Simulated scan of single mutants.
Amino acid sequence: MKALYYEKLEDDCVKCQLCPRECILKPDQRGYCRARENRDGELYSTIYAQISAIALDPIEKKPLYHFYPGSEILSVGTVGCNLSCMFCQNWHIAHDKAPTRKVTGKELVELALRYNSIGIAYTYSEPLIWYEYILETSKLAREAGLKNVLVTNGFINEEPLKELLQYIDGINLDVKAFHRKFYKEICGGGDLEVIKKTAVLTVENCHLEVTTLLVPGLNDDPEEIEKLSKWLASLSPDIPFHLSRYFPQYKMDLPPTDVESMLEAKKVAEKYLNYVYLGNLTNADRNTYCYQCHYPVVKRSWQVDVDLKDGHCPRCGVNIPIIL
């Protein structure tokens, strides 16, 4: 399918304008993400309707804890990414040659309805490079009464993001670190200021939760966690913040994140944010507590139990911003 957001240049070259890399491509060249190709002076999506992974997941797995807790969502991914993080957890579909199969947007919506999913989550690899397919499918899903969720690195230009956000209900934004050097040296590029702008636009348009994978010695310093948490709180202290444990993967062989450093990071973040969770950690407390009286308003074990009274804590009455 012909891509959106590109500019034609001389000599049949094109300039992709989807993400801030803005790759300039000669005929037959593909962009950094491997998902967009110059064909005779026009830009095309090479992954339109191509799915590499599909599953019916708990919404908490995205992770989204304040967005229809206890529900299930049809989750799909494609191949490629516009970053190249050394610790990539899904490198086999983001950077390798994973097999795909064609599933139209209409078929995807029908699957979601058939399995009583609350909607569709575009996840696993980087969904924003799947832009044309997601834009079309999210419109169909919205018409069918389904929710649309993105799990994304947020590295996208403002204009295409604004267009897409009209049809998105929830986002988990992966903030890799809170300093530029990490993006440049560990993620192969990216721009923290772009990610911050994505967060601002998301808060203004739909539900936002944030995840940071804590990599030992690289982005887990308490001072950095404090700066990130303080900045998120300036958007809203109610943004759920997920601190996830790193394990060796792809091109990085550092030892797993120390549990004590994760607990310390959570303690630091909770100075500014009302809801901080630890992920990828055995026996972590996944419950949601009222930030005022600490009553467990959502209990998560083998099932999810929600105890709210008209969106408020049943014990102290404070508003708990959870979408039900």
Rank of each mutant, 00 (worst) to 15 (best):
V151T: 11
P160K: 08
I195D: 02
R101Y: 15
E264K: 15
L281N: 05
A55R: 09
T288N: 02
A144F: 06
R30F: 12
E7H: 03
T46R: 13
A177Y: 09
D238M: 05
K61S: 15
L43H: 09
L213M: 14
L243H: 05
T78D: 09
C16A: 11
L56F: 08
L213Y: 05
N319T: 10
I195Q: 05
P296L: 03
E223V: 11
F87P: 05
K266L: 03
I323F: 15
N157H: 06
P58F: 10
K61V: 09
K176V: 04
Y272C: 00
M262T: 01
P248W: 08
S138L: 07
Y65S: 07
E204N: 09
C16M: 02
L201A: 01
P58S: 13
Y183A: 04
H66F: 15
N116R: 14
P248M: 03
G77S: 11
Q17A: 09
V203P: 07
P216V: 05
F155V: 06
T137F: 04
K266F: 04
S75R: 03
E193M: 03
Y250E: 09
M1S: 13
F155T: 01
E107V: 02
A284K: 06
E226L: 05
D169P: 13
C206Y: 07
V259D: 12
T257V: 01
G190M: 00
L213D: 07
V210R: 13
P222R: 12
L9T: 04
A49N: 14
G189H: 05
L308A: 08
C33Y: 01
I73N: 06
I118E: 06
E37P: 01
K8Y: 08
N219I: 00
I168A: 07
Y68V: 00
C13Y: 15
L18Q: 04
L278R: 09
D285K: 11
D310G: 08
Q17H: 06
G70E: 05
S84I: 00
S301V: 07
H179W: 12
I59K: 08
K181T: 14
W91S: 12
E110D: 14
L218H: 09
N287D: 15
H294S: 15
F67M: 02
L56D: 05
K176Q: 09
Q29L: 12
K2S: 10
R300M: 08
N319S: 14
D12G: 02
E143S: 11
G80K: 01
H294Y: 14
R39D: 00
R34M: 09
K162G: 03
Q166A: 13
F67A: 02
R101G: 14
I54N: 00
Q166L: 13
V203G: 04
V175N: 01
S125G: 08
V297G: 06
R142Q: 15
E209N: 12
N90T: 04
I239S: 01
D285I: 10
V175G: 03
D310M: 08
N274R: 15
Y250S: 09
